[in-house]
């Protein structure tokens, strides 16, 4: 009797963890890019190694990207971005932890407008944000697209007066995550 009970609870734990694992959608090659536009200079950088996990059951969403993985066409700019602005040695990642507000059934193929609410951390500063995006659900994958704006001053990213006209105060961030069912 006792053995049976232990076995059953073990089975239960196994089944629960299995169903929970089943509801995870994941990528390690998500794309996150930003764009800074001023009359003097346009700067664009792309990170193609952005990691993201979405729990379809709880609709929890986590996104994380390494600062050093942002690729600039001009590598000197990339060095300055890491060294002077983002201080990537002290703050190696940028991350978002939040939840999708809409009660979407991800197992049903279709396109859904979604809103994610959560905490965005850039340059070691965490702020609550609300990001609007779209979600395309297919049989085994979810494509999440979003875009939002970041004010550099909000995250204590110092832009010296010398290059003030080259770097926009508000940076446009966008992302495409092709999440695959685990």
């Amino acid at each position: 009797m006792k053995v049976k009970r232990i076995f059953l609870s073990f089975l239960l734990v196994l089944v629960t963890s299995w169903t929970m694992a089943q509801s995870l959608y994941r990528t390690s090659v998500g794309e996150l890019s930003f764009f800074s536009k001023t009359p003097v200079l346009d700067i664009e950088a792309v990170n193609q190694k952005t990691g993201a996990i979405l729990n379809a059951t709880t609709r929890d969403l986590a996104i994380q990207a390494k600062i050093t993985d942002f690729q600039f066409p001009n590598k000197l700019m990339q060095e300055h971005f890491n060294e002077n602005y983002m201080e990537s040695e002290r703050f190696p990642t940028t991350k978002f932890a939040g939840k999708i507000k809409e009660d979407v059934d991800f197992s049903k193929p279709g396109t859904y407008p979604v809103t994610a609410e959560g905490n965005l951390t850039i340059h070691g500063v965490t702020k609550p944000v609300t990001v609007k995006g779209s979600l395309v659900a297919t049989a085994n994958s979810l494509q999440v697209k979003f875009s939002f704006q970041v004010r550099t001053a909000d995250y204590q990213i110092e832009v010296p007066t010398l290059v003030f006209n080259k770097i926009a105060e508000v940076i446009a961030v966008s992302g495409t995550l092709n999440l695959v069912k685990q």
Binding site: T58, D60, A62, I63, Q64, P92, K95
Partner: peptide, 25 residues
Amino acid sequence: GVVAQDDLLSMLEEEQSKEPTYTIA
């Protein structure tokens, strides 16, 4: 919710820390 999100983040963290981060500048 918070715990679950942090769990998800630490899963990402674990995965990304496997790749080397090269020292720059």
